[in-house]
Each structure stands twice: as C-alpha cells, then as structure tokens.
C-alpha cells in the first residue's frame, strides 16, 4: 500500500463512475455514477491524508466531501421525485387519485 497504489485504485473508481454518469439514462443511475466518482475522491483524499500530511485539516476536508455527497443525494432524490411526478402517469399520482 503506497500513495501511488491508493491513487490508482481511486482513479479506477472515478473512471468507472465517469462511465456510469455518462452512459446511463435514468436519473438515479446517473447519481450512482456520480457517487462512485465521489467514492474515488474519498479514497484519494484519505490516501493523501495518510501518506502526505496527517493533520486534522485533511480529515475536515473528508468530512466535507462526505457531507457534500449526502447533500447531492438528497437533492438528486428530490429532483428524481419531481421529474417522476411531472411525468404525470406514475404510480404516485394514481395512488393519490385513489385516495381523493
């Protein structure tokens, strides 16, 4: 385990994420691609912290990355829900009508 190998693995994760984010049609699958990229970023940031400068600042940076990812997920889900409702023929609307 060296810095180079950690970064190589992180690049592989980011590359798979790039493929997914570009190739998928469904919003949620695109989000999975983005998340895989952030997964790589988390690993790279962790590796840089451990091998270059193990002080608390790097850890705070990692916290921010994880927080950003969670925020991305929350917003992504909200947008996915909105798109789905706008489509107008989804199960949610049908369920709401049944309750009417």
């Amino acid at each position: 385990m060296t810095l180079e190998t950690v970064l190589l693995v992180a690049s592989a994760l980011i590359a798979v994420g790039v493929y997914g984010a570009l190739s998928q049609q469904v919003v949620v699958m695109v989000m999975m691609g983005l998340e895989l990229m952030i997964n790589g970023v988390i690993l790279a940031a962790g590796g840089l912290w451990w091998f270059l400068a193990p002080d608390p600042s790097g850890q705070v940076l990692l916290l921010v990355v994880i927080a950003a990812m969670t925020v991305e997920m929350a917003m992504g889900f909200a947008v996915a829900t909105l798109l789905h409702r706008q489509a107008g023929h989804d199960m949610t609307d049908m369920a709401a009508e049944l309750h009417g």
Partner: peptide, 9 residues
C-alpha cells in the same frame, strides 16, 4: 471496491 463499482452498471 472497483469490481463492485463496475457491477453497478
């Protein structure tokens, strides 16, 4: 991690 990541797609 990489194999599981690739399996996602």
């Amino acid at each position: 991690s990489v194999v599981a990541g690739a399996l996602v797609f």
